[in-house]
Design a protein around this nucleic acid. Structure first.
Lengths: 141, 141
DNA sequence: AAAAAGTAAGATAGAATTGTCTGATTAACA
DNA sequence: TGTTAATCAGACAATTCTATCTTACTTTTT
């Protein structure tokens, strides 16, 4: 069971943080990212394609090609990545899975969960790639 | 992707809430619960077996048999159910999936996530089946 | 003793997620 | 122009999660 983000989503976030730490003019290959972050290479390839399609990445084919951020790292937030990969997760249904849970007939943890979820959403909407790349001081990521 | 709890876990919580609302001396059959809550019957059967094995439920075979809570509804908390079904989810690894994330080399959202996770854990450790069965006023669950 | 209604348990199927492999295409460079 | 190294794209395999089916066993009632 994924904790909050899917495996794909975790990989996407990790890869974009990696890109955010590189000089922006460089094309970075999937191979390099996969090796450094220990992510299955071809799986990452698919994820990067999705991120390109969603407008978060640019790509360059051919020799010395690779990927780069399509926007400034300050303009890309965790939320954008999650949305691109996992879709619209946080507007979704009841935590307890009750099919008819709503404001009018709330489930037993409706309000508590709303607060917690809002906290999560707020965090991932505020945290940018730039913030995160700055916070990683130690190499190895 | 599961939002927070696995499908199994959602079903387990729902079923236990249902039991908590019944007179405690009654045996309730899987069939009844599955029908009322619209849960796949045999899948629920397996889940109930797990919950029995973990000591949250009692069962009675044979005609007019069924399941009942093994403890008072006030003594069973969401956390217990999640632990029984999904295992030790909340002591688990990094939200971003970084394999070497720790207090010493935290990931970029380590502290923020710790607070959010603690909020979730606190909530599910505090919320009992009794609380939840009380809060469901409307029938249909 | 037999029938009925239930749990217990295992085998199996389906679906989603994750991961692997291969070939086509593209671009830079010698 | 050919080689090399990269993305792109599709097929496929493995794993995990979810769901179904079937059989065995247990208990109560008749």
């Amino acid at each position: 069971m994924s904790l909050i983000f899917s495996r794909q989503c975790e990989y996407a976030i990790q890869a974009l943080i990696y890109l955010a730490k590189q000089p922006p003019e460089n094309w970075i290959s999937i191979k390099e990212i996969a090796k450094k972050l220990k992510i299955p290479q071809h799986f990452l390839g698919k994820i990067m394609q999705s991120l390109s399609a969603m407008g978060l990445l640019q790509s360059q084919k051919g020799l010395f090609g690779g990927f780069g951020l399509a926007k400034s790292a300050k303009q890309i937030f965790i939320y954008d990545i999650v949305e691109a990969i996992d879709g619209d997760v946080y507007r979704r249904e009841c935590v307890l899975g009750f099919p008819n849970c709503s404001e009018k007939s709330p489930c037993p943890v409706h309000d508590e969960w709303k607060d917690l979820r809002n906290g999560i959403v707020e965090m991932i909407k505020k945290k940018s790639l730039y913030d995160m790349s700055e916070e990683i001081l130690k190499p190895g990521y």
